[in-house]
Simulated scan of single mutants.
Amino acid sequence: MIHTVVDSPLGPLTLVADDEGRLAGLYMQDQRYRPADERFGPAVTVPAGPDADPAEAVLTEAADQLQEYFAGTRRSLDVPHAPLGTPFQRAVWDALARIPYGETRTYTDVARELGRPTAVRAVGAAIGRNPLCVVVPCHRVVGAGGALTGYAGGLVRKQRLLELENAPAGRAASGC
């Protein structure tokens, strides 16, 4: 594992790559459930040079795509990624990845899509553990009626991401 920290409109973002050249994490500062920094491996500088190993190359590509996303010229991040989680968590994260840019879904919608309509709380817990914020767009999940609800990176950041995408969101806020 290696990592780098890049600036963004949301504050510093820590990008973590595995040894196979896949993005394993994208974490915001003070994000809930953020692993200890020691687990991220050594820090590297991006952009990586032409001789970069696959892990450095994916960090450079992710940083470039994030810059385009925040500039409004990219709608999704498509770097190779491999988030670590349980089979249920990965199924939830896969469902999140299918939510189109500029749209939102409720926790209930995601549970129904998974064929587990009564698993709304488990879906919420899996969303909160998403290790690839922005890449796996958990900010596109809102509460019933469009209410802004929990976001591991903080509700202010969630609101900013939804505004960037011009996605609908309500005004009520609660923790998750």
Rank of each mutant, 00 (worst) to 15 (best):
R75C: 02
D37W: 01
G41M: 08
L15Y: 04
D30R: 15
Y69P: 06
R32F: 13
Q29F: 14
L66D: 06
R121H: 14
G25A: 09
A119V: 09
E113H: 01
L114I: 04
R32V: 14
G49T: 15
G49S: 08
E68R: 15
A82K: 10
L15T: 08
Q29H: 15
L96W: 09
L114D: 03
P87L: 13
E56H: 10
Q31F: 09
D94Q: 14
R39T: 15
A43P: 05
Q89A: 14
A24S: 15
E68S: 12
H81L: 05
P87N: 10
D51M: 10
G124I: 11
V79P: 05
L77G: 04
A71D: 15
S76T: 15
W93I: 08
A43D: 06
E113N: 10
S76H: 13
D94P: 05
G25R: 11
L15K: 07
T45M: 06
R105T: 00
G21Q: 02
L77D: 05
V46F: 02
V16A: 04
T106Q: 07
A36P: 07
E113W: 11
P47R: 11
L66F: 14
E103M: 03
R75H: 14
F40E: 00
R39S: 15
W93P: 03
Q67M: 06
P80T: 05
A36E: 15
P87M: 12
V16K: 03
T14L: 08
E103P: 00
P87W: 11
A55M: 02
A91Y: 01
Q29W: 12
V46D: 02
T45L: 04
E61D: 13
V16Y: 03
L13R: 02
T14P: 01
Y27I: 04
T106E: 01
P47N: 08
T118R: 13
A119T: 12
G115I: 15
